[in-house]
Design a protein around this nucleic acid. Structure first.
Length: 791
DNA sequence: TTCTTCACGCTTTTT
DNA sequence: GCGTGAAGAA
């Protein structure tokens, strides 16, 4: 190795050796360390291309093919061969977590002495970094604040009220969503298409957006979208500045390219115009963030967008068994718009996937609980197990079950630390001390805890502030000079302003920011308020505030802490030990487990009804990619399940198996026959038999057009064993709601039934042959259904 | 101003 | 079924 670390090596053999643990082994096998350790499985041309390609490069990396390895290895190679210094590379990810992991892995390869990777981060953090340098070019002060979703919505509310729009008809949340969507597509207020502006308050959409933007300017703030948009505009309007960045960034690397939105694409394209050395890694089949602006088209169009681009396909999977891959492939193959890859493995075919139908969510959870116990009996660990659900409300049943069984588990996701009300309140106090002009923070805590400054006083302040163009704190001081406010409002506001001044002085006087936080919570009465609240949540709120103080201690200054938190809305989570993981499919991207449960595969739950309603085929295909992501998380075993009846928002509903169940390949799937309910048939028939309730619901109307019925017939035609709903009904009676306690019939006691003649009723009895229903209105008990065969 | 009551609506999640 | 949020009551 060269003794002078600052001398640029003349050729690759002189490049610094790589400090990776397996280096010795690699050497023994005669292969250069990098390739042997990290790019195993690529053919020689691909290896060469990943490491040395100049110009645009797209790596299409299927699930489990080592996507991140490709990116880190390329980065390390560029730095290791001194094609660029670390500071001359730009590496972009979507999440802070991904950025952290990338940094760790890259530093392992290039060694910690190689210099900081100061331009490795998320789109937003890198944009913020740039924007703080050139804030004045965007009409901002470098100390601008970054608003989070909550602030955004509140600002939208103000805009709506100021415009005299009915906030019930046109909700602030909706406007915030529209603005967000426009920003994702890099549309400034003047560029919003007319018809879309009409989607809000009869054509006032673009105007509201305009006002929202000018309010942001006054507040010296931007939202997340602005971080990118301002940067893009600065680049467009200042070619010489852009040229500086072109000279600076010799290589650009992008992770998860399929998740980029229009703004991010433009941002990348501007920066890549310099060297053209942009390497994007992604998988079109794993694009699951369309609903927040990701454009799969970006990856589909890559070769057009970046002329002369090379494309590499990584299709060898190192993660899952053959059956799991076959199942995933068979599902994703139904999607029309995809680039197309075929994953393969040299590993075992492994176990077939299990598909099971259950009567309801409880029995599904019960069964999954048993499977996990069996897994543990095989001396395998709980942390190897994950339950992946479509929506977070589905988690509850599993939590309850695992608690009952005493199985340790952890829910991943859930409310973020910095989004909790108490944390946001505390943060608002800090923001107000840092910048007295932060109106949103002022509004948030001026009456929290209660100081007698209620809606009327605040509204008075706001109208005056708006007329005057001055921030709320300034106006509060002015109004206190007059006798505009009386009684509690006046004393409360005065005390608030005085306290703010006092705390600000303490900070200026050198009080550590952690101590200041404690003082604020104490003197403001916030802690008192929580301690007096005997609610079930108040203790955990107090704990959270303690945790906040602890987290603040990791930063030297208040300013450093605030700037970090605005971008990274998360606090370093404790990594779990021996725990089953429960998480959403979205949160599972990028992770893997030996044993994966995929419950709740029911039409309208997964694929989600709303997704299809709102986005049609596009929505459905995204749901299908979600199914693909789910299946490919499994290394060894994968259990898919669905129920016939499910409680959604407290209401019982009959549900049908997801169409994705049908898309699984028969050869790789076992359908269990122990579903218990339904008409008790076997094979795929069981699955659909169990769903008899769903078919029955529509009896007499459109049941023969329902997807469940059609599939039942199709399966019958294929010669599979199917079970048809085997009961006749008196009139047009239909099951509309089922009880939760399964009796020994297909329709448990308590099932709610509707009858054309008698109205609503509940199942009160039955003997496997007959169903007796008590009708609420008429008071008559009547046998309405007779089973042709005993279930 | 604050407390109480009813209506509503409700994916997925990051920055 | 539950939490939020806005309208009415003390």
């Amino acid at each position: 190795m060269s003794s002078n670390p600052n001398r640029l090596p003349q050729n690759e053999s002189e490049a610094p050796k790589l400090s990776i643990s397996q280096r010795a082994a690699a050497k023994a096998s005669g292969a250069p360390a990098l390739e042997a350790d990290y790019l195993e499985g690529l053919n020689p041309e691909q290896r060469e291309a990943v490491l040395t390609t100049e110009g645009p490069l797209l790596v299409l990396a299927g699930a489990g093919t080592g996507k991140t390895r490709v990116l880190t290895t390329r980065l390390a190679h560029i730095i290791g061969t001194r094609k660029a210094w670390p500071s001359q590379t730009l590496t972009v990810t979507f999440t802070n977590k991904a950025a952290r992991e990338m940094r760790e892995r890259a530093l392992k390869l290039i060694g910690p002495d190689a210099g900081g990777l100061s331009w490795l981060g998320t789109f937003h953090s890198i944009s913020a970094q740039m924007l703080r340098k050139h804030a004045e070019l965007a009409g901002l002060k470098p100390s601008f604040t970054i608003l989070d979703t909550d602030d955004q919505v509140r600002l939208c509310k103000q805009v709506i009220e100021a415009e005299g729009i009915d906030p019930k008809r046109w909700t602030p949340r909706f406007l915030a969503g529209l603005v967000d969507g426009w920003k994702n597509r890099a549309l400034t207020p003047d560029k919003v298409p007319n018809d879309e502006a009409y989607a809000f308050a009869d054509g006032r959409g673009a105007k509201c957006y305009q006002i929202y933007q000018s309010r942001l300017g006054v507040l010296n703030a931007c939202d997340f979208g602005d971080l990118l948009l301002h940067t893009i505009r600065i680049f467009q309007q200042n070619p010489d500045l852009l040229a500086d960045y072109h000279a600076k960034f010799r290589y650009i690397l992008v992770d998860e390219y399929q998740d980029t939105n229009v703004a991010q694409y433009l941002w990348l394209r501007l920066l890549a115009q310099g060297t053209g050395n942009i390497c994007c890694v992604g998988d079109d089949d794993q694009s699951i963030y369309g609903w927040r602006g990701a454009e799969v088209d970006n990856i589909l169009r890559f070769e057009k967008d970046f002329p002369g681009a090379s494309v590499i396909r990584l299709e060898r999977n190192y993660r899952s068994t053959g059956h799991i891959l076959a199942a995933a492939a068979s599902v994703i193959d139904q999607n029309k718009s995809r680039l197309g890859k075929t994953l393969w493995t040299e590993g075992e075919k492994g176990e077939r996937l299990k598909v099971r139908g259950f009567w309801d969510g409880e029995s599904e959870a019960r069964q999954i609980g048993e499977e996990i116990e069996a897994w543990a009996r095989e001396k395998r660990s709980y942390e190897e197990v994950a339950i992946l659900v479509r929506a977070s409300w589905q988690m509850r049943l599993f939590e309850e079950r695992l608690i009952l069984l005493g199985i340790p588990y952890r829910v991943i996701g859930g409310p973020r630390f910095f989004e909790r009300a108490e944390i946001r309140d505390a943060m608002a106090y800090l923001r107000l001390i840092r910048s007295p002009d932060d109106d949103l923070a002022f509004e948030r805590v001026v009456n929290q805890p209660k100081r007698g400054v209620g809606g009327t006083s605040l509204a008075k302040l706001q109208t005056m502030a708006r007329a005057d163009g001055r921030p709320l704190t300034t106006l509060a001081r002015m109004i206190l000079q007059t006798d505009e406010l009386k009684g509690a409002a006046r004393t409360g506001l005065m005390r608030f302003i005085d306290q703010l001044d006092l705390w600000r002085d303490k900070l200026a006087g050198g009080m550590p920011h952690t101590e200041l936080m404690e003082v604020i919570l104490d003197e403001s009465g916030y802690t008192d308020m929580l301690q007096k609240d005997r609610g079930p949540k108040s203790q955990s709120r107090l704990d959270n505030l303690k945790e906040l103080v602890r987290a603040m201690g990791e930063f030297d200054t208040l300013e450093g802490f605030l700037q970090h938190v605005e971008l990274v809305m998360d606090v370093g989570g404790q990594s779990g030990g021996e725990e089953v993981q429960i998480l959403t499919l979205h949160a599972a991207k990028g992770l893997e487990w030996p044993l994966v449960f995929l419950p709740g595969w029911e039409e309208e739950v997964f694929p989600s009804k709303r997704s299809i309603d709102e986005n049609g085929l596009k929505g459905l295909e995204e749901e299908r990619r979600l199914a693909y992501v789910g299946i490919t998380r499994a290394r060894e075993r994968c259990h898919i399940s669905f129920a016939a009846n499910r409680q959604i928002y407290g209401r019982w509903q009959s549900v049908l198996p997801s169409r994705f169940v049908d898309e699984l390949p028969e050869d790789s799937v076992d359908v269990a026959s122990d579903t218990g309910y339904g008409a008790g048939a076997t094979g795929f028939g069981t699955a659909f038999g169990a769903v008899g309730g769903g078919v029955v619901e529509d009896l007499g109307t459109s049941s023969y057009n329902s997807p469940g019925w059609k599939r039942l017939q199709a399966n019958k035609a294929k010669g599979r064993t199917v079970s048809e709903p085997s009961y006749t009904f008196d009139g047009d009676a239909r099951i509309i709601e089922t009880g939760s306690s399964p009796g020994d019939m297909a329709f448990p006691l308590g099932a709610r039934v509707f009858h054309d003649k008698f109205g609503y009723g509940r199942v009160v009895g039955g003997d496997g042959q007959k169903l007796t229903v008590d009708f609420e209105k008429s008071g008559t008990k009547k046998v309405i259904a007779t089973f042709l065969s005993t279930p």
